[in-house]
Amino acid sequence: MAVDTLLEKALGGDIRSIARIISLIENDNPEKDALLKRVYPMTGKAIVLGITGSPGAGKSTLTDKVIEHFRRQGKKVGVIAVDPSSPFSGGAILADRIRMQRHTGDSGVYIRSMGTRGSLGGLSRGTRESVILLDACGYDVIIIETVGVGQSEVDIIKIADTVCLVLVPGMGDDIQIMKAGIMEIANVFAINKADKPGVDRVAAEVRLMLDLVKDRPWVPPVHLTVAENGTGIEELVASIASHSVFLKSNPDGVRREWRRLAFEVEEILLQHITRMTEKSWNAYKTDEVMELLLSRKSNPYAVAEDVLRKIIPGTRVV
């Protein structure tokens, strides 16, 4: 199907077309940039929420309940649930939506599972671009559920307006989180499984950390939640909404958007350069060139310079 028709149908709310365009984005289809350029002016309305935290913290169950609350307010919700791809096969088992399956019958909810597909940060460019599409298609709230390990937890700030960090008592991960610098990026805290022993200690530790920074324009609220039975979700959702209002009204929020957009341009540039580089290098990478390298008659720097000159004449590596 022509991309134009797909886009038209997607903007009209056709689920399968939305899904297909997200696949084009994920597969880095050559036509996707033009398409995103076209829809970009329609974006900027959605609340983009990142939900992050260690595996086992209950992110999916929490997401399920957050969807429910936004739906009650009549908002359309899009979810991108990211799971790790296997570094060996490139395949993935994507199982986050199990806990959200009750929403499948609801036409106001779109859930998409994504593999990390080798992106170092766990969040791919495709994640951000899918957010753009969903925003253009009229989803009022777009939730990104991260893998919950390593870099993805920090990277989420490059995509989401509001980051919700999910912690649980008794997992011994509080210290790790503080080490990794994730505390700094969270705008809202959910101490989940709050019916378990140790919850007060975790909450106190988080508050203590937050107190270390004085005079912040937005003090991240700390909520105790039991996602399984919905306890505390209403308050959490209210905090998310007020953070989104804060971003629009406060200079700090504007600065944040400024940084995010600068980063976005940088990413698009990098993606294009990578693509061009790959193309040129693949064309240049003949057996002869490799032989020269192997026999040390040439060197990687010289070769790189030659390749680069094909893209941008006159450049020098060294």
Binding site: F88, G90, A92, L94, T104, G115
Partner: peptide, 21 residues
């Protein structure tokens, strides 16, 4: 997965409607 595919696993007790959606 080990053959490189992305598998969306829905878990138990799915209705036909849920699977199709």
């Amino acid at each position: 997965r080990d053959a490189g595919m992305e598998v969306i696993y829905t878990g138990l007790r799915q209705t036909a409607e849920q699977i199709v959606e």
